[in-house]
Design a binder for these strands. Structure first.
Lengths: 228, 228
DNA sequence: GCATCCAAGATCGTATACAATATTGGTCGC
DNA sequence: GCGACCAATATTGTATACGATCTTGGATGC
C-alpha cells in the first residue's frame, strides 16, 4: 500500500512557487519571466518552465505575448474594478453559507490565519501579510463547501494581490484585520445574515482603498522598461 | 501597416476546436484524448497538442491523470450542482447590467443567436443547439461589459454542456427558447429587474431539468471502458 | 481453472535540438 | 549629428528523442 499521493506535476510546483512570489509582491507587475531563467532557478527544463508560465497565464497572473515572452500581469484600472465586482457577487453569499456551516475547527483555522497575518505585519513582511489576508478569504469559500466558487475566488484573490501592488493608496492598513475579526465573530454565532453583510462592506472598503482614477491602462510596455 | 493580428498560438486553435467538439457533444464525457492522436488530427506535434490539453484541463473541460493521459471531463453530480449555483450567483445580476445598457445591435445579435438555435433544433443538430444556447448566455455577459465575469461564465457554460450530456432528462426541450425570448424582450425594454428575475428562474428551470439524484460520482474509469 | 507474476507494448513526462521571430547594436548615407 | 537600414544576438515556437510509468497479454505454478 505505497502512497500514490504524489499527484503533483512538477510544472505545477513551479507555477505555485511563482504564484506565491507574485502574491507576496516579490515579483512586481511587468517583470519579464524568461523561460530559461525560470527553468534554471527551479532546476527544470524549459519545457516545464513553459508549462508553468502557461498555467499562470490562464490564471491571469502572467501575460503571454507571442514571440515576446511572459510578463507578470499588470491589471488595468478597469480590470481591477471588474475583479472586485466579481468578488462582490461571489463572496458575500459564500460567506453566508460558510457562517451557517462552519465548525469549531473551521473557526480555529480562520483565527490561526489572522494570527499569522498579524505576526507578518508586525514582522514588517507586508507582502506576506497580503498573501495571508487572501488565504483568509479563500478559506471561507472552502468552508462553504463550494469548490467551484472557491476556485474562482482563488483566482480573483491572486489578481487582487496584483491590483493592490499597483493601485494601493496607503492608509488604514489595519482595517483589514478588524473586518476579518468581525467576520470570525459572525461565524462563531453562525449568523449568515451578518457574515454576508460584513463581507459585502469589507469588499467595498477594499475597493475604496484603491486609487483607480489613475487610468494607468497606459501602454504596459512603458512600465516594463522602468522595471528591470 | 501589415496586420499584426495573428495573435493566435496554434495550441489555442487546437484547444478551441476540441472545446467546440465537446460543447457540441461530438466528444462524450470520459473519452480518452491521446496526445499523439490529437496532434496527428490537427497536424501539429505532441508539444502543442499537449499544451492544448493542459489549457482545456485548466478550464475543467478535460481531466488530466498523471501518466494516464487526458480524458473529457465527467462532472460529478455535486460538481454539477456547484456549477449551477455559481451561475445563479453570477448571471442574474449580469443580465440586469446587460439589460440596462444593451444597444439595438446587441439585441439584434441576441435575436440572431436564438434564430440560429431554432434552426439547429429543426435541423436535428441537437449538440449544436446546446452550443448556441450557451453562446446566448455568454453574449449577455459581454453586453454587460464585464470581461472578467464573462470569462467565468464562459467556463461555467462549457462545463454545463458536459453536465447536460451526462444528466439531462429529456422533457421540455423548448422551454429554453421561450426563456431566451422572454429575456430579449426584457432587454428591449431595458428592464433590469425583469431581466434579473427571468435569468434567475431560467437557471432554476435548467437545474430542475437535470437528474442529479443519480449519484453517478462512481469511478469514472468504468464509464471510460464503455465509451471508445 | 484460477490467480500471480513478468515481460512487451503503449503512453506520458521531460529534456534537448532546431527553426522562426523579435530585439539590439552598429554602420552607412544624408 | 541624425535617421534608416541591416546583421548579430537573444528568446520564443515547435518538433523530436529518450527515459519513466502504466497497461496488457500470456506463461507459470498451484
Amino acid at each position: 500500500m505505497t502512497e500514490s499521493l504524489n499527484q503533483a506535476p512538477s510544472s505545477e510546483r513551479v507555477a505555485d512557487e511563482l504564484a506565491v512570489a507574485i502574491h507576496e509582491h516579490r515579483l512586481s507587475p511587468g517583470t519579464k519571466l524568461n523561460e530559461d531563467e525560470v527553468g534554471a532557478i527551479y532546476g527544470v527544463s524549459r519545457t516545464v518552465a513553459r508549462a508553468a508560465l502557461q498555467s499562470l497565464a490562464h490564471k491571469r497572473l502572467v501575460e503571454l505575448r507571442r514571440n515576446r515572452g511572459a510578463f507578470v500581469a499588470q491589471p488595468s484600472a478597469r480590470e481591477a474594478r471588474e475583479v472586485f465586482e466579481a468578488r462582490a457577487l461571489l463572496e458575500p453569499r459564500t460567506a453566508r453559507s460558510a457562517a451557517e456551516r462552519a465548525t469549531d475547527e473551521d473557526i480555529a483555522l480562520l483565527q490561526h490565519h489572522i494570527d499569522e497575518e498579524h505576526a507578518a505585519i508586525h514582522a514588517g513582511e507586508l507582502g506576506r501579510s497580503v498573501h495571508l489576508s487572501g488565504m483568509f478569504h479563500l478559506e471561507i469559500a472552502r468552508i462553504a463547501h463550494q469548490e467551484t466558487i472557491a476556485e474562482f475566488i482563488a483566482q480573483l484573490i491572486a489578481r487582487s494581490s496584483l491590483i493592490i501592488a499597483l493601485y494601493w493608496k496607503r492608509r488604514g492598513a489595519l482595517c483589514e484585520s478588524h473586518a476579518h475579526h468581525a467576520l470570525i465573530q459572525a461565524f462563531a454565532k453562525h449568523d449568515g445574515d451578518l457574515a454576508e453583510e460584513l463581507m459585502k462592506h469589507h469588499l467595498l472598503d477594499l475597493v475604496t482603498s484603491l486609487d483607480l482614477r489613475n487610468v494607468s491602462s497606459a501602454p504596459t510596455s512603458l512600465r516594463e522598461a522602468l522595471r528591470p
